[in-house]
Simulated scan of single mutants.
Amino acid sequence: MTDHEVEFFKENGWVLLPRLVGPGRVDGLRDRALGYLRTRSRERATLVDQAFGQSRDIAESDEAFHDLAFDAAMGRCATRLLHGVRGVRVQVTNLLIKEPGDDGHGATEFHQDFPWMPMDRSAMLTVWLALADVPAGMGSLRFYNGSHRHGVLGRSFTRDGDDQLTQHPWLKELELSPPLDLRAGDATVHHALTVHGAGANRGDTPRLSFTVTYFDADALYTGTPYKQTDGLGLQVNAPFDHPRFPVVSHA
């Protein structure tokens, strides 16, 4: 990762990292992803389900995705981008699919990732890796530049027509990132406070991606109800010292 990419992320809240994963490795990951996604639940009960399908916590059961998410180089990149943190933990891994066509998934409304989280600080980012070519028309992510500097703006995916742009029309005063054509192995990285979204998949094949979210290793647990952390016995106002949230990198 170059100094320019780090500065771009700091300024805009997102960055494109071309060729993050090499062709041979990403081909293998794509084949594995297709196998998992074929068996996923097809239920579309929530607004999230209508935007994309997913297979959560994939790194817990798949060695190849685990090796990528927990690669020390990935952890060092995340630590460098989250300026001022000593190290990072893995929060969640995910396989995502956005199906094309009239019966496919719709647009992913503009939102922030952080408002749902039970961490006491927002130093968090997500690496979004294209497992196959994702031309802009297939629904690659777009970002409101600098939106991460405006703090927590509230939850989305809670009510129809209540995304971040509806709640905060002034966001349209910010520059929207250009449509991105991603090749397999390219990745975008965005801060958990960056407002982002994606259009529907207008292509002929599914949009396939793998995501891993990293957060500040020194973050404290707030006790906010959250499905992933409920019942783990985490102590409020203490670090996330639990096998589910291992430290990947120390500065």
Rank of each mutant, 00 (worst) to 15 (best):
T2N: 15
D3V: 13
D3Y: 04
E11N: 14
N12F: 07
G13A: 05
G13W: 02
V15G: 13
R19A: 15
V21F: 14
L29N: 05
L29T: 07
R32H: 06
R32L: 12
A33D: 03
L34A: 05
Y36D: 01
L37N: 01
L37Q: 05
R38H: 15
R42A: 10
R42K: 11
A45N: 13
T46P: 07
D49G: 12
F52I: 05
Q54H: 14
I58N: 07
S61H: 13
D62P: 06
E63S: 12
A64F: 04
F65G: 00
H66T: 08
L68H: 11
L68N: 09
F70T: 14
F70G: 03
D71Q: 09
R76G: 13
A78I: 00
A78D: 00
L81G: 04
H83M: 11
R86C: 07
R89F: 04
V92L: 10
D102W: 07
P115I: 02
P115Q: 02
W116D: 06
P118Q: 11
P118H: 11
L125R: 04
T126S: 14
W128C: 00
D133W: 07
P135S: 14
N145P: 01
G146T: 09
S147R: 06
R149N: 03
H150C: 06
R155A: 07
D160S: 11
T166A: 14
Q167F: 01
H168C: 05
L174E: 05
L176M: 12
L180P: 08
A184V: 08
G185Y: 00
G185S: 06
G185Q: 02
A187C: 09
T188A: 06
T188D: 01
H190C: 01
L193S: 00
T194E: 12
G197P: 00
A198Q: 08
A198Y: 03
A200R: 13
A200I: 06
N201Q: 10
R202A: 14
R202L: 15
P206K: 08
P206M: 10
R207T: 10
S209N: 07
T213H: 04
Y214W: 08
F215W: 05
A217R: 01
D218Y: 04
A219E: 05
T222I: 07
T222Y: 00
T224D: 14
T224F: 15
Y226A: 03
K227Y: 10
Q228A: 15
L232C: 12
N237H: 12
A238N: 12
A238F: 14
P239F: 04
D241H: 12
H242M: 02
P246I: 14
